[in-house]
Nucleic acid binder design. Structure first.
Lengths: 353, 353
DNA sequence: CTGATTTACGGGTACGTTAACGAATATATA
DNA sequence: TATATATTCGTTAACGTACCCGTAAATCAG
């Protein structure tokens, strides 16, 4: 272990060469006023020549600024534990950047109550955070919220689903259409002639759920593109309790005895799995998300494939992006599509959410 | 943006409460001698009480130590561009931790020349680095090398393939057996009765290639466990040029006209794809690794599935682990199996290596 | 008991950057 | 011309930790 050689490229060195004080160099670096044009240009040329990069450690350490970020995502409900994963990612990011002078306030809303969402957005705006991470379930209300953010000059990052209006610092999440398309492609390998495919949407708010619609669209597009869409059945189930779901399923399975493949467009797939298992149906079951209950059915061989998009990473990356943008004004990818991961019983043990 | 509140949990605060100087606190924190038993215990109790966590920024900034890490991986050959990815990961890690006082020296060896490997290991040991990242292609020589590292007390991290001897700080790479097992499971969905599976190993050094053997073992194990291994053909091809490969393939395809699925145990799958394309064979082709040439054949529909294990991440994580271990003595996962990713034409565009 | 050594501790500077404060100079106003 | 006001810049104290160096007191050797 050697000793570190004294840095020859810091503000001090720049100041020495420019024959000014480090304060002046600092002013130039931060584009603050109070420096004559001549001096400024000289310093800039030296900075370029030295290829100077500020020391991030020292920068954060010396900065007395505190950044306050707010996160707004759905609360973890009994219906699905999906949002546990992004929250974990948020907590990890929190832990990592806490000592860099970042405070993260976490807000949650009820996915079944628009008012709870609106209320939380107001609280957040009142608190005037420096940046926001948002999972925008309700499209219209989210658009209104983000419009306000832009007026107040508060950068925001979207996760899990994008919004029609422009202006987010970044979108980090799935490309829903392609994720449905991929599932269809998988299915195409598995299906034989004369066998039917059943598509199932399960959600109280199917019509407001961008997610489900886009996925189904992608799924159907594949079969359209390959000219074999006549084999697709579909049901929408607007109740999320087991009983109702089983009733719907019983009905459709009794009407069609040649259903071979079942595609559930969201993480509720475990409820369908419960039905399949109890009725001992011989079908291939495909659904979404790396949830405990889903993995259990996969390990039992009931669920064959799960499509997953690193929800934990979404929370984590979202915050890190905000932080880097605010603290170092580093560039941020405008759209960061998460990989579309295919899980089976063999690789799920190695999956990193 | 508020001003930061003065930290109430630093060494200064500990010193104040213990009624000693910060130097003494520092001695306790680093377990150095020169502190009376009584004072030490008192300080330790205060540290615990305050739940003190050192400020990593300040720590690195104040440390005058320089850490020198060495990496040893195969050079990028004409045969395969696989090692480009881990190198990219190494370079990214380099960029990120450079300013934290880390110097990374990169060494390469020729995968076809054991001597080049041995030579490089000697150079590295002579340079006495503080830590080593190693991709151990040649098992015996690697064991000897790592044994020496342990004698010299130099921690090392293995990537891409593990070694039989204990003592690495961490292994970061695939679980080869399971990756083969997964491929077999995929195949099982695709195969119909009376159709044959062809397994192809392509490598000059098949018998020394832990990689190929383990994958094939996993692949076969799946069929053994499910009692249908009679349909598996296999060829070993010890020449890596297109001509030789095509000769072997022509022969076996002429002998068997019911081959429906082809499984190539490494990244050379594109060469098989070339054959399949030119002969217009109707088979399902499965292989390994997210290489440019492989993706091209996937986009053309010749290659159906690629199994991939984030080689870039392996290089990146390996270095970060070493760094964190050396700089902060943070705990490191002894074995970090990479996820087993399944790529198809639909999700490859979103893949992050 | 004297001198040497060891033990236990504090003072202070450094790491590279930020930014408050104030001094000096230049320019505008009356 | 005297005074007010900008403009341009330097001095200096932080941020939290590491570690060199010095010294008083305790312990040891003879």
């Amino acid at each position: 272990m050697k000793k570190r050689v004294t840095e020859l490229t810091g503000v001090k060195e720049i100041a020495r060469r420019a024959n000014v004080s480090i304060a002046t160099v600092d002013r130039v670096l931060h584009n603050r006023k109070g420096v004559s044009k001549h001096t400024k240009e000289n310093i800039l040329s030296i900075i370029k020549e030295l290829n100077y990069e500020p020391n991030l450690l020292a920068q954060r350490l010396a900065s007395r600024k505190i950044l306050r970020l707010a996160t707004l995502i759905p609360e973890i409900s009994k219906e699905t534990s999906f949002w546990d994963a992004p929250l974990k990612g948020i907590e990890q990011a929190d832990k990592e950047i806490k000592q860099f002078g970042i405070i993260i306030d976490k807000y949650f809303y009820d996915q079944n109550k628009i008012e709870s969402f609106v209320e939380q957005t107001k609280t957040i705006l009142d608190s005037k955070p420096d940046g926001i991470l948002l999972a925008p379930s309700f499209i219209e209300e989210s658009v209104r919220f983000t419009d306000n953010c832009r007026k107040l000059n508060i950068p925001y990052v979207l996760i899990d689903s994008d919004l029609p209006n422009e202006g987010s610092l970044s979108y980090i999440g799935p490309n829903l259409y392609h994720s449905g398309y991929l599932a269809a492609h998988l299915v195409s390998y598995l299906i034989k002639n004369e066998e039917k495919i059943l598509v199932i949407n399960i959600s109280r708010e199917i019509d407001n759920q961008h997610h489900l619609l886009k996925k189904e669209e992608g799924f159907r597009a594949y079969f359209d593109n390959h000219k074999k869409n006549d084999a697709i059945l579909k049901i929408d189930i607007r109740d999320t309790d087991l009983k109702s779901i089983e009733k719907h399923l019983s009905k459709i399975f009794s009407e069609h005895n040649d259903i071979k493949i079942v595609f559930v467009t969201n993480s509720r797939v475990s409820k369908v799995a419960h039905f399949i298992e109890s009725k001992k149906k011989d079908v291939i079951l495909i659904g979404y998300d790396f949830l405990k209950e889903n993995i259990e059915y996969m390990d039992k061989g009931i669920i064959d494939f799960l499509v997953c998009q690193k929800p934990r990473q979404q929370g984590y990356r979202g915050l890190i992006s905000l932080y880097q943008h605010l603290a170092f004004s580093s560039p941020v990818e405008k759209i960061y599509f998460m990989p579309i991961d295919i899980l089976t019983i063999e690789n799920s043990a190695f999956y990193r959410n």
